[in-house]
Amino acid sequence: MEVEGVYHAYRRRAVLRGVDLRLRAGTLCGIVGENGAGKSTLLRILSGELRPTHGSVRHSGRFGYCPQHVVLNDALTVRQHLTFFQTAYRLSDVRYAEEIMDVLGFTGYIDEQTGVLSGGTRQKLNVTLALMHDPQVLLLDEPYQGFDWDTYQRFWDLAARLRDAGRSVLVVSHLAYDTERLDELWRLDSGTLRADKAGAAA
């Protein structure tokens, strides 16, 4: 993923003031920023939901995006969600999704309607839908909110395994937890991205 000179303003209020970012293959990166730093705007642009005022975003390969707020259909079961996105991604089966479900520990809920699931389980499905086509570029917005400690650990293990398999993983959060797990860490401040060497492992 390559981001060049992204600038965005809501009317006269500039939120992003020239964001440059290159996400290399096989890296696990993080972006942190305080409330109101422009993370949501940047994510909307990176995911294609919002067109920046200036600048460009390029993705090559399959792209996966896990939104911060759980985006599910409460009337459908977990299995029906998998079928819906299997069709969207044109996958021949959902074995990979089932393996992710196994890693995140919610296989037992496959026939439950998502409207009755707990917040943490809904978030697990939210993440699974972003991962189930094995994206080469993965953008995760606050992906572990609602996870218990065990699931939180397993999530990071999964992210590291994806990185080791050559995938680019970008985790966005308002708090710089577990920055030692990241290869690169950027801080979004005053509308620009700055490398934060202190927390990153590489």
Binding site: S92, V94, Y96, I100, D134, A165
Partner: peptide
């Protein structure tokens, strides 16, 4: 180590 997804 990474489960291969179904082929597109």
């Amino acid at each position: 180590g990474i489960p291969a997804p179904p082929q597109a």
